[in-house]
Amino acid sequence: MRAVTVSRFGGPEAVEITELPVPPVGTGQVRIKVAAAALNPVDAAMRSGVFGGEGERIGLGWDVAGTVHAVGDGADWSVGDRVIGLATGHRTPLGTHADYAVLDADAVAPAPAGLDDAHAASLPLNTLSAAQSLDMLDLREGQTLLVTGAAGGVGTHAVELARLRGLDVTALASADDEEFLASRGADHFLARTRTPEPAAFDGVLDAAGLGRAALAAVRDGGTYIGLWPGREPETERGIRVDALDVRADGARLAELSRHAGTGALLARVARTYPLDEAGRAHARLADGGLRGRIVLVP
């Protein structure tokens, strides 16, 4: 079978298509025949060596949508079930950008009703990141939240989920995204060319990675959550500062999948590429300017 891997770190030119055996399925696991797998910025980070692993062959891909192909002992799934799932962390030699992927059974959820595989594949990493970040913020109904990078994959889902929690949400993004974000549940909008009001928000989800500029918008004693552990700013004014380390969670993903099936969470696909053109897909991701995920289709 084919798998997208890197054996040296670098840009899109480092991406390889490797022939590997179909992976065995172990106890408590399922093997998924991949129908679609989203390409995320974290894949570019792995390709370029941010997570280490020099000298190893590293498999790329965290998100997956497809059908259950084989079931290990103790896994409560059936062959043919249509599923989505999240594989996290450093993988040698196989990720989800492959013809087949093996995941722990508790990292898998039913695919959302009414969505095709490409759109379903865009959901796991971004929706779980948004939901778990909001959990870390621990804001109560009516409290104020600023989401930076609000038109991106994680940011948009954070706006949508914050609306469901009854938070007062301000979205910070490009001026062109104001109408879109209002349609997804933002109560207020702030163009990214403007500086947020100092100490104005109970919490900030800094999906854009603005760091200290976003921290300045948090009230004394509030909460700042970033998306890249180790890159968060130092605390000040009694603000709780933390960063998300996203976890696979099939039960939570099932809930988010249901929201996507009703339209409460919007799955966005910018473009699809055949698996064999993964290098071109990485190059397009590097160009930026996308609204929605690039998805690889075996």
Rank of each mutant, 00 (worst) to 15 (best):
D104Y: 00
M1A: 14
L60A: 02
G222E: 10
E277W: 09
T156Q: 15
S122C: 05
G74S: 07
F180C: 01
A281H: 04
G89S: 07
T127W: 06
A44K: 02
A254K: 06
A121D: 10
A171P: 13
E160W: 04
T170A: 03
P112Q: 03
A151F: 07
A121Y: 05
M136G: 04
L134Y: 14
A214I: 05
D202V: 04
P12L: 01
D220Y: 06
L86D: 11
K33I: 00
P229K: 02
A281W: 02
L285C: 08
A214L: 07
L146G: 08
L134W: 14
R212T: 14
A65F: 13
A217E: 15
R165F: 06
N126G: 04
P233C: 07
L244N: 03
D73A: 13
L115C: 12
G185H: 14
L210F: 15
L253D: 08
I17N: 10
E234G: 14
Q143R: 12
I58E: 11
A278R: 00
I239G: 00
E197D: 14
G250D: 06
D104N: 15
L125H: 09
A217L: 13
A70H: 02
A278L: 11
T223L: 07
D177Y: 03
D138C: 07
R271N: 06
W62A: 11
G149T: 00
S133A: 15
G80S: 06
V15C: 11
R91A: 14
T148A: 12
G222N: 07
G209H: 11
E141T: 10
G166P: 01
V241R: 08
Q29I: 03
A130D: 03
G166Y: 12
R268H: 04
E197Q: 09
D245I: 02
D43C: 09
D73L: 03
T223N: 05
D81Q: 04
G203K: 06
G49Y: 08
V83C: 10
A175W: 12
E179W: 09
A38M: 06
P298A: 12
G221A: 08
V269M: 09
R247V: 03
D106M: 02
G226N: 07
A70S: 15
A87E: 13
R184L: 11
I294F: 14
I17R: 04
H188C: 04
A286I: 04
T193A: 14
P110K: 00
V15S: 10
P93V: 04
A162E: 12
G89T: 05
S183N: 11
T92S: 15
E160C: 00
P93E: 09
